[in-house]
Nucleic acid binder design. Structure first.
Lengths: 149, 149
DNA sequence: CCTTGACGTCAAGTCAACTTGACGTAGTCG
DNA sequence: CGACTACGTCAAGTTGACTTGACGTCAAGG
């Protein structure tokens, strides 16, 4: 049961930044993207709920394995505004990201292991190495590389 | 035995780009970075050795798992100019990248599994979740964008 | 021979995820 | 009270990996 039993502690930008291990400018940036929120004091200074530390931790952890802020944003938006996320919340995010994470893991292990194989087979000759198959290479979605349509 | 038995086929930019699944502009870009090379015709058009396909495949595969062009460049620079890379060549690259690859794999699997754990433990509360440890999070040095696919 | 398209160069644009800078205010401490 | 620091806003810069655009050239086909 989420304890909406308020006793909320508010942190100043510098404090939050320090404790979360990010720069203050990063907080501004995240806020501009709607990843975190703040209230203002009379003097227009930001104040963050302590919970924001948890959000930042989640962002960092996700980011670190290559999930974009965009997707993290979606995930966060799907979490409840009040109280702690529930089993169901995490289950949903887990489901959303699982394929992605698994795919990354597969590619990584494959490349790592490929080195051993290639060492044995004189590989990296286009036809024999699965890793040199261009058709199979279009994972990257970004703007960057786009296959000839 | 590397067959330096010449019978080299030269490809035009369009051909290479198509067969490798990249844009011609990408070839220019890679060439500017020294990842691939070309010779010129009388009319100043580029011509690439067919081997370049293999190099491009290697670049794609490596890139896909998050190795930067910079590191790929180093790896390529360490390969022999003539003939196919040997066992030793791949072994060296493998060694260079292994920690990196393993680390990525670890983080990925950890996050993936963490979801299950967190679902069970109501995690993502800063103290209990290893993934929310900020001290451990300051690794990111870079200036600009830093993604770990 | 002329048109079309692939190619050449170089500068500038793009995108994500931030940081830096310029410049002004708020709050704290000696 | 005055200095100093933390903070506020907004624009612009940075990095990596490319793409796009502008503009001119080479080559093959009709």
């Amino acid at each position: 049961m989420a304890q909406v039993h308020e006793d909320v502690v508010w942190l100043k930008p510098g404090q939050l930044a320090e404790r979360a291990g990010v720069a203050v400018s990063t907080l501004h940036y995240y806020e501009s993207l709607g990843l975190i929120t703040s209230r203002r004091t009379a003097g227009n200074r930001r104040e963050y709920r302590r919970d924001t530390l948890r959000v930042l931790a989640f962002i960092r952890a996700s980011q670190r394995v290559g999930i974009s802020l965009d997707r993290i944003s979606d995930a966060l938006a799907s979490l409840p505004d009040e109280g702690l996320p529930t089993k169901k919340d995490w289950a949903r995010i887990s489901r959303d990201w699982e394929d992605d994470l698994n795919e990354r893991i597969d590619h990584l292990t494959a490349l790592r292991d490929k080195f051993s194989n290639c060492i044995g087979c004189g590989c990296l000759s286009l036809k024999s190495c699965p890793y040199s198959n261009p058709d199979d290479i279009l994972g990257a979605d970004g703007k960057g590389a786009r296959r000839i349509p």
